[in-house]
């Protein structure tokens, strides 16, 4: 049975005007503005993508995403992601490890450089690779002599994807590893553990959720990247088109249903990523919280 032990404060709480709360019209006004904005710029377009995609029926939808060029675009996107994500995972771990664990000259420069892909326009990122590996670029003549194609070919797309996605894992790990410090690793070291043992049994379990979170963000960006990839791809249908590029081509050909069908796949992917991100955010907080609890700092 429920007994109300504090009748006055409990029942009156909602009637009392809390001194720190804004007036009702302002609260509801702000909520309304936020919802309106979200509806107009996020929900409506999302609905539009799916309705447009299915406008001409499921048959057309299915044909659009199983047509050879679309399949090849999906394959290429998965390939670029499949190469970029593991590489950036290794790079991110190494960079975060170096930054969190060692003192060295140029550490601040490294931290700043890791953020470069966030700051620089993806188109410029693509152009950098054209400048370096294009026919007129620095390594162009050498590459032509050895019959190696990077620009307007798959390697260029992979390179551009790696460039734009490399901050994600490192950015997630650096603050966590800096907060956690090195005591557990030192304890393992003094107990006689070798480097691999320490990494697999002490370091990795402590950062696993943040690492996974970084990987998911990295993968989402890798699949959705347009600008940098567009510059180096050359838009060769069935060969160097990724999903976003394929959407653009279809759209430019006024093939709206097919364009939106492929776009809906990307949108679906974004929704899945968002869901995974939401779940993981709780786990990432757990990484930090467990650390705090272990230090006796809870509360």
């Amino acid at each position: 049975m429920k007994t109300n032990l504090q009748p006055t404060s409990e029942t009156r709480a909602d009637l009392q005007v809390c001194p720190t709360t804004e007036p009702a019209w302002l609260r509801y006004g702000l909520i309304f503005v936020a919802l309106l904005f979200l509806g107009l710029f996020v929900v409506l377009p999302l609905i539009a993508v799916f309705t447009q995609a299915l406008e001409k029926g499921l048959g057309v939808y299915w044909a659009a995403i199983t047509e050879p060029d679309a399949l090849s675009a999906i394959r290429l996107t998965l390939l670029a992601t499949g190469i970029a994500v593991p590489l950036n995972l290794v790079f991110g771990l190494a960079a975060a490890w170096a930054i969190a664990r060692f003192q060295f000259r140029g550490k601040n420069v490294l931290i700043t450089l890791i953020d470069l892909p966030f700051a620089v326009s993806p188109v410029i990122a693509g152009l950098i690779y054209v400048l370096m590996f294009g026919a007129q670029g620095w390594f162009g003549p050498w590459l032509t002599r050895h019959d190696i194609k990077i620009i307007f070919a798959v390697p260029g797309i992979v390179l551009a994807t790696i460039f734009v996605t490399f901050p994600f894992v490192a950015r997630e790990l650096i603050p966590l590893m800096q907060a956690q410090g090195t005591e557990e690793e030192e304890a393992a070291l003094v107990l006689g553990a070798g480097g691999w043992h320490i990494f697999w049994r002490v370091t990795l379990p402590n950062i696993k959720w943040s690492l996974l979170y970084g990987v998911i963000l990295c993968a989402a960006r890798a699949m959705g990247e347009f600008g940098a990839v567009s510059v180096v791809s050359g838009h060769i249908r069935g060969e160097t088109n990724t999903m976003p590029l394929h959407v653009e081509i279809l759209y430019n050909e006024y093939n709206f249903a097919a364009a939106f069908a492929v776009a809906s796949l990307l949108a679906l992917l974004a929704l899945v990523t968002l869901g995974a991100k939401r779940l993981l955010e709780r786990k990432v907080r757990q990484d930090y919280a467990e650390f705090a609890a272990n230090q006796g700092l809870e509360g």
């Binding site: 304890a187 002490v202 272990n294």
Partner: peptide, 8 residues
């Protein structure tokens, strides 16, 4: 260690 450094 001062802060125990147990493997959590």
């Amino acid at each position: 260690f001062q802060h125990y450094a147990l493997f959590r």
